[in-house]
Structures are given as C-alpha cells and as structure tokens.
Design a protein around this nucleic acid. Structure first.
Length: 234
DNA sequence: GCGACAG
DNA sequence: ATCTTGTCGC
C-alpha cells in the first residue's frame, strides 16, 4: 500500500516499546485531515497460541455503500509477549503486511483496538496512522483507560470518554440496548468525525462492518450469505 | 495494599 | 485471542 513514514525497530523489548510509544505519541494529529471518503479499510488480527502465529486481515469497503472491494491476509510468527498497552508490537507487523497486499488503497483505516484512549495516548490505531501518515480510527470492544457518565440506551448516543481532564475518546452505542464500543482518534481525524464514520459503517450489529469483515477473514470463517445484512433467523 | 489491565 | 449452550427478544 504505502511505505512506513516513521519506521522503527520491531525487534524490541517491552521497555523499549514503551520508549518508542513515548517518542512517537507527539506525532499524532487530532484534527480532521482527510480526503473525501470513498473507501474504508478494516483491520483485525487473530492469534494462535499453539503456533505462536498472528494472522492479520485487511479489507476495503466502498463508502458509504459498504461493498467489499478488496481483501488481504498475512501471517507472522510473533515473539513479543502479550502486554496490555503494547498490542501494536504483536499485531502491527502482520497488519502492515496485510495492508501492503491490498490493491485498492483506502482513504481511512478502522482498527480493532484503541487510538489515543491509551495510557500513553498511543494505542494501535494511532501507531498505525502515524507510521503510514494516514487517517485512522480506533474502535475498542472493552475499556483500557478512562471513565464516563451513564450512556443513553438508544443507538447513536454517545458520551465522552475522559481520563483526568482529557477527553480521550467516545463511548458509542452502535445498537439500542447493546453494550457500547469505545471510539478514539487514531490519527488525522477529529473525534466527532470518527464517531460519525463509525456509525456510518455500522449496519445491524454492534461492530462496524469493517471490523466484522476483517475479523471474519482473519479467523478464517466463511461468509454465510453476502455483505448485505443477513436475515434475523438462521 | 487493592483493583484494573485493548487483543 | 480463545474456552462455550441455550436462551431471550425483535
């Protein structure tokens, strides 16, 4: 897809990884700096404990109609340990490989995992965005850091995710009565824009179609019907 | 000391 | 990440 704008060594210790995050966190841009969005990518990764291999998937959907335009997978043996806050050092190398195998380049990438809603404000989505110099959004399924007030039950409602005095993300209800997701700036996008885009990529499930499709590809499961919303039964 | 801790 | 059935509700 595109060479890394800010390459760095991946063969590092967790201590060195933290230092890299501290050094790169200042490169994150939190205002909109996007092109017209015609294509949205989703990336996800799965880990196989037996083989110690990470398989990453990247998919590209047209926007706003969300039709599958491109997809790619990549595998890598990983030795970096699982450490909360250091996901990028396990998953990103494979994710970069998968993105590099795409033929259609996306205008923005939605990542599984947080952006700046991270202890050092440099989660995997921000890391990917800064590396590539591309807009990214973080969508986490569980909270890593931050607090928030009660969230209304209705789809589309959201409240800020705060850490001290900082707003680090949004708690977003993507479906009425369903557990929310945590949206945060990855790179080159404002929070409100990110929330709107995530909602625009969400059809009838909790997670945006980008994440769902990438996850399905990474986990090797076949698609049952089509990219269109399947029937409610069977 | 205790709880929390993305995938 | 993954282990895992039935069940409740639209």
């Amino acid at each position: 897809m595109m060479p890394a704008l800010h390459p760095h060594d991946w063969n590092v210790t967790p201590q060195e990884a933290v230092a890299i995050q501290e050094r790169m966190r200042h490169l994150v841009e939190t205002a909109d700096r996007l092109p017209q969005i015609y294509r949205v990518a989703g990336v996800d990764a799965c880990f196989d404990a037996d083989s110690q291999i990470v398989r990453a998937a990247a998919i590209v959907l047209s926007f706003p109609d969300l039709k599958l335009m491109d997809h790619a997978v990549a595998q890598r043996a990983v030795k970096f340990p699982y450490v909360s806050g250091l996901f990028a050092f396990r998953e990103l190398p494979a994710v970069l490989d998968a993105l590099g195998r795409l033929h259609k380049s996306p205008d923005i990438i939605i990542c599984d995992g947080h952006g700046i809603a991270h202890p050092r404000r440099f989660g995997i989505a921000s890391h990917l965005g800064v590396l590539l110099g591309q807009p990214t959004i973080g969508v986490g399924k569980t909270l890593l850091v931050g607090h928030h007030i009660e969230l209304p039950r209705e789809k589309g409602s959201w409240v800020s995710l705060d850490d001290g005095n900082e707003v680090i993300g949004a708690v977003l209800r993507t479906q009425t009565g369903v557990k929310p997701v945590y949206v945060s700036i990855g790179h080159r996008i404002a929070l409100q824009t990110a929330v709107r885009l995530v909602l625009a990529c969400t059809t009838r499930y909790r997670l945006p179609e980008t994440t769902r499709e990438a996850h399905r590809l990474a986990s090797g499961k076949p698609r049952l019907y089509s990219l269109d919303p399947p029937p409610s039964n069977g």
